[in-house]
Design a protein around this nucleic acid. Structure first.
Lengths: 198, 198
DNA sequence: GCATTCTTATACAGATCGGTCTAATCTCGT
DNA sequence: ACGAGATTAGACCGATCTGTATAAGAATGC
């Protein structure tokens, strides 16, 4: 029998459903997990699912929303450590390293969700929002740099971020974060030396 | 009604099944497509599927095998264009650019398959083989370079490859290939200047 | 206290899933 | 021409899917 994801006492069915969905959806994929599995792990009646959520699509949307919020909070928290523009960019890759080191790491939830998303599915909108946030994150970090090629550098950093995330998942190699960080340091240094504002 | 993927005349049911599976599995995901959809698009009886294949898992394995073979052939074909070690590395990213420009591009079939793969699924073995090939590809291209940090440079190029593939899919931006190519040129030039063999 | 809301357990519906089976037909090598 | 192998169409199976219905109990707020 599957063990409960959270204590039944004093936690609302809604929260228990979200916790169970988060674990199951991330570990096995949104499509592969049925709602029966979710309500069983949450220890909740099926009726409560449809009372608190509009349906599975709604649960998927909330799952991705929660992942998005948790990740932005983790990044924002780490970014308070320093104010140096160059170091703040590299900090993102340090956070990635701690993420990859989690033995339960199974890749980016949004990339995985997009991989199995139907054409009109709720995953696509959530993923688009996540990508907007990612581009904005690097865009703002780069804007703090005295550099002329802001757009180019931002695009480069996004690719390094995506490469680290994907390589870490596909090859089970957390050190992909360190490799990407080295590349990020290189490209930032290059922009600072060749494209510094006059 | 769904149109046939291939002409019924003079093409064996096995080939028609593979062609239909390739299109459906890639476009909608391995898990989301049922065998009924495949046999309908292939214009083949259900019995023929189980006569020619062991089951859906077997069909999935052959689908990924075909993707692997087609991609290696495309890369190998492009690599005949030049013998210059540095240019050959960058050529890989040129092929990526043509791949991303296909309006039907929906990401790397192996990454997508892994995203929805069950723990013991046939996708994992196929994906592992693909990743071995990818590392070997860059490993051999780097080995032709007179450089000391072969392993480091190989890992860096794999990350740039993965980043381009993922960013192109998530942001629908084929120009990710050009961005990654620029980074690859930078890192190759850096290794040649700082790590050239004595 | 009492009504409203929330939660529970369970049965059920309609659809689809991968897979098996049968029996007739077709293809093709000898 | 004959027989083996390949293909066909379709019925059928048990399992699973998302979602609904029902009826009774727990919690909550006024």
């Amino acid at each position: 029998m599957a063990e409960k994801a959270v204590d039944t006492k004093k936690v609302s069915p809604r929260q228990r459903l979200l916790a169970a969905a988060d674990e199951l959806f991330y570990n096995e994929g949104v499509h592969a997990v049925g709602i029966d599995r979710v309500i069983e792990k949450a220890g909740v009646a099926k009726g409560s699912l449809y009372y608190n959520f509009g349906g599975k699509d709604d649960l998927i949307r909330e799952y991705l929303l929660g992942r998005h919020a948790a990740w932005t909070a983790r990044i924002d928290g780490a970014l308070t450590e320093t104010q140096d523009p160059g170091e703040r960019i590299l900090l993102v890759f340090d956070v990635l390293e701690t993420l990859f080191s989690d033995p339960g790491y199974r890749g980016c939830s949004f990339m995985n969700a997009v991989a199995e998303a139907p054409v009109g599915g709720p995953e696509l909108r959530a993923a688009a929002n996540f990508r907007s946030w990612l581009h904005e994150l690097f865009g703002q970090l780069v804007a703090a740099l005295d550099v002329r090629n802001t757009q180019e550098l931002t695009d480069q950093l996004v690719i390094l971020y995506d490469g680290a995330v994907t390589a870490a998942q596909m090859d089970n190699s957390p050190q992909a974060a360190a490799t990407a960080k080295t590349l990020a340091a290189m490209v930032v240094a290059y922009s600072l030396s060749e494209n510094r504002v006059a």
